Simulated assay, not measured.
Amino acid sequence: MFGLKAGQDRSIVLSAADTVAYGVRKYLKINAVVGIGPFADKLDRIQEIYREAKQSARNAVLHGGNRVSHWTAQLPYKANRQSIIGSEDGKLLAEWLDRLDADQIIRWTKRRLGAIAQDPNSVFVQIEWFCVDLYLLFNKYLLANAVDAEWTIGELDDMLRWLQQITRIGEIEERMIGLASNVIGVLARSGDRSGKEVMEVVRAYIDHHFAEPLSLQSIGERFSIHPNYFSKRFKEKYGESFIEYLTSLRMKMAAELLSDTDLKIHQIGERVGIEDAAYFGSVFRKCYGETPKQYRERLHST
C-alpha cells in the first residue's frame, strides 16, 4: 500500500509501482502485475479501493502481464451494467440454436471475445459481462427447450468463481466454446428424455466401463452434463455418490477375480481400473476388512 503526502502527485505512486514490478521480474524471475485503485484520503474507503485495484489487476488477462494497471474514472467497469449481447445478437443466437448450428455460434463467440481482447481500452469486467450474458441466454433457451438445463451449464456462481481464477484469455474462449457445444449436444439429443433416464444411461455406461479412468469431469463431458449436477443427481437417485458407486463396483469385480482366477494382486487392480497396487490394496481392505491376499487365502482355505 502506498501513501501520498500533501502536494505529491499520483505519478509518484505509479513510478514506485513500476519499480516494484521491475524488481520482482528481475530478481525473483516471475511475472508481476500491479493493480492500483483510486486515491482516497479516508481509511474507511480501503476495502473499496482494494476491490478497484484487484479489478485493475485482472485486466492483465486481456492485455498481458508484467504491467502496472491503474484505475481511472473513465473505465467501463465504473459505468452502469449494460448488456454486452444485444437483442439482435440474441435473435441470431436463438436462430442458430434452433438449427443446432454449432459452427455459427462458435465463430460468433470467438469474434466477440476477440474484439474485446484486442481493444486496448477494454477491461476484464467486460469479459465477465459477456460470459454472464451468454450464459443467461443459453440458460433461458434451454429452460424453454430442454430438460434440466442446469445439468448442461451449471450455476452462474460456478462461472463467476471460475472467471476470477483464469489467467489467460484463451481459457475463456475454450470455456465458452465448450459451453456452446454442450448446449448444442443436449438439444441434438432426444428432447423428451428425462433426468431419470439420463442417470440410468450414465449408470449403464459406468457398469460397462468401470475399468477405465472415469471421473466426474469425463462423465460430464461425455454426456453433456455439468459435473456438479451429475454428482448431485446421481446421489439423489442411487443413494450413494458416483465415487462410492464406482469404487464398490470395482471392488466387487476385484473380489470375483481374487476368487476365480490366479491373477496377481497388481494385475487384478489394473483389471478393475486401479493401477497403483498399494492404493488398490488400501481400498479393498477398507471395503472388505482384509487385504486382497488375506481375502484370497481365506477363500482357498475353506
Rank of each mutant, 00 (worst) to 15 (best):
A144T: 05
L97R: 02
D157L: 09
Q47C: 03
L137A: 11
M159S: 05
E95Q: 09
R81H: 15
Q104H: 14
L92D: 11
F138V: 07
L93S: 10
G86F: 04
F124H: 11
H70A: 13
R51S: 06
K54E: 14
W151D: 14
F138L: 12
S122Y: 00
I116A: 12
D101I: 07
W129S: 03
S69Y: 06
S69T: 01
L163A: 05
W96Q: 08
A144E: 12
N145T: 09
K91Y: 14
E155M: 09
I85A: 10
R161N: 12
Q118W: 04
K140E: 15
S122C: 02
A117K: 14
S122H: 01
D101V: 05
E52G: 01
A53I: 10
E155R: 13
R67V: 15
A57M: 12
W129A: 01
I127L: 14
D148W: 04
H63R: 04
A146W: 09
N145Q: 12
E128D: 08
D103I: 10
L134T: 12
K78L: 09
P120G: 06
D103P: 04
D158T: 11
Q74M: 02
F138S: 04
N139S: 14
Y77C: 13
S122A: 11
Y141L: 08
L142V: 09
L62V: 01
I106M: 10
S87Y: 02
S83T: 00
L137T: 07
K54V: 11
Q126V: 02
V68A: 11
G86A: 04
F138Y: 15
P120F: 05
K140Y: 08
L113E: 01
Y50I: 10
Q126P: 06
T109M: 01
L134I: 15
Q82R: 13
Q164F: 02
L136P: 00
P120E: 13
A79D: 08
D98N: 13
I116R: 05
Y141D: 07
Q164I: 03
K91F: 14
Q82P: 00
A60H: 01
L136Q: 15
N80A: 00
T109V: 07
K78P: 00
L156Q: 13
V68S: 04
I49N: 15
E52I: 11
